[in-house]
Amino acid sequence: MNIFRLIGDMSHLLAIILLLLKMWKTRSCAGISGKSQILFALVFASRYLDLFTSFVSVYNSVMKIFFISTSLLTVYLMYFKFRATYDSNHDTFRVEFLVIPVGGLAFLVNHEFSPLEILWTFSIYLESVAILPQLFMMSKTGEAETITSHYLFALGSYRALYILNWVYRYYFEGFFDLIAVVAGCVQTILYCDFFYLYITKVLKGKRITLPA
């Protein structure tokens, strides 16, 4: 473990808590893409299958359980409890155009052709594009609530910090995972436009309006 990965995980944790807080306090999931949340649940379900088979550390297991349970809770809140406030008219990204190519790529490009490894690879690729329905929805609605902006900033920062973690681990531990690094860079690049808007607008107290 290093400081970059620790702050990254905390940023990821913060993002999920911010989202749950927004939904719980406003009793609404307006402006949130349910499709992205389903993709995140799929990412965690396919990545943490080794939760019961390989023990890494208490921290690792606790975080995996937290991510799986909160992602399922988020999907439940969006599609059941606060379903009336779910904005399905603007959440129209065709996720099959993400899941199918990502599924195929995971079969073709992976470290080892085994079920667990292919599912892990699928999860890594899927996570890199899972935010697209959310960004697409924001471009259609033309704006985002401030707390949703904070959620996205924390979520985008987590993988950006993981990139620093991989640089650190490469130089100090000789650790390098090309699949995770490439997908992590793609994922972070997708947030760049939002990061720009967040830093130039939200931090000055304005609301984010798209297209900029």
């Binding site: 390989s54 993981y162 973690n165």
Partner: peptide, 10 residues
């Protein structure tokens, strides 16, 4: 080939 390195990242 590299031994099965345990996946220790989230």
């Amino acid at each position: 080939c590299n031994h099965k390195k345990k996946k220790d990242e989230l």
